[in-house]
Design a protein around this nucleic acid. Structure first.
Lengths: 158, 158
DNA sequence: AATGAGTATGCTATGATATTCCGATTTCGA
DNA sequence: TCGAAATCGGAATATCATAGCATACTCATT
């Protein structure tokens, strides 16, 4: 499990190098935290972890770091949770869809480009030229459908 | 223009009556403000308007009211803007998609049920049973594509 | 090595959005 | 008229995010 985190980190480092951008220690650390979480994490959760690790850190540090990671495609923002999740394919820009379990928080990214195209086409019919798609589907994951009480019962707007 | 607002208000009142829920003065007033805005409005904008009108009002008042209006399907929340917009068809529950102009803020709702079904099917493939879909597409509306400088250049995450 | 431009970080303060909790009032059927 | 449920008022606080400016680092060029 930690292996996959390390793998993703190495991959991100390689991509960053190739692009001529800096995966600094802070950026690397934040990405690592998000990868380890394996589900959407709030900015202030990350901040708390950063503080534990390095003693000090302020909100702007985290948000700047997140801006960078999102810009590079290493991380996605989940709008309906004000949270951040690692991208499953940081190589190339893509349009993804998220399925989010309101019971346990598990969040799965898919990259169905056919769907993405259909959505953009729908918007085009309305005269819009789309640059960014947000697709977040809330419901219950397979595990929680079986055992509803097992979930952590996350709060937040279901 | 105000006619359509009055019409929507009357319709909402009728629906509320039919459902046995109360469209109280505050609720009616907030819905009116959202209808008049014609685009996504923030909760604190509504709060300010409420204060102007009635002297006093606190955040919980607005949020409670919004909860009610959303529950009844009179209003939708735009997650990527933390804002609220009137529904174009409050009669029946539906899954909609939003096209949002990052230049002028114009936001158009569509209710392409075929797309909505395809999205839920995609999530079903991942084992999820979906209860709520969030589809928000950001870009540029027809008007702003013609005259880019005309837009109000809204800030916010594009 | 010294310079300096560009990038990244530290840090204070503040802004913006949202909820909890409790008590008072209103509504409305029995 | 009584009582339960719904609604509203209001203080306090939680949560999420940015502005603005000073400092420090990086690295190619001199």
């Amino acid at each position: 499990m930690a292996d996959s985190v390390m793998g993703s980190l190495a991959k991100a480092a390689a991509i960053a190098k190739e692009r001529g951008v800096a995966l600094t220690p802070i950026r690397r650390r934040v990405l690592e935290l998000i990868l380890k979480a394996g589900r959407p994490v709030g900015a202030y959760d990350l901040l708390a972890d950063l503080k534990t690790a390095s003693g000090r850190a302020m909100p702007p540090t985290v948000y700047r770091t997140l801006d960078f990671l999102i810009e590079q495609g290493f991380v996605h923002r989940i709008e309906s949770r004000n949270a951040f999740i690692a991208c499953i394919d940081a190589d190339s820009p893509h349009r993804s869809q998220f399925a989010i379990c309101d019971s346990c928080g598990r969040t799965v990214e898919s990259m169905n480009d056919d769907l993405a195209r259909k959505l953009s086409r729908q918007a085009a019919r309305l005269g819009f030229k789309i640059e960014r798609q947000i697709v977040e589907m809330h419901g219950t994951c397979a595990v929680c459908q079986e055992a509803p009480e097992a979930g952590l019962r996350r709060s937040h707007r279901a």
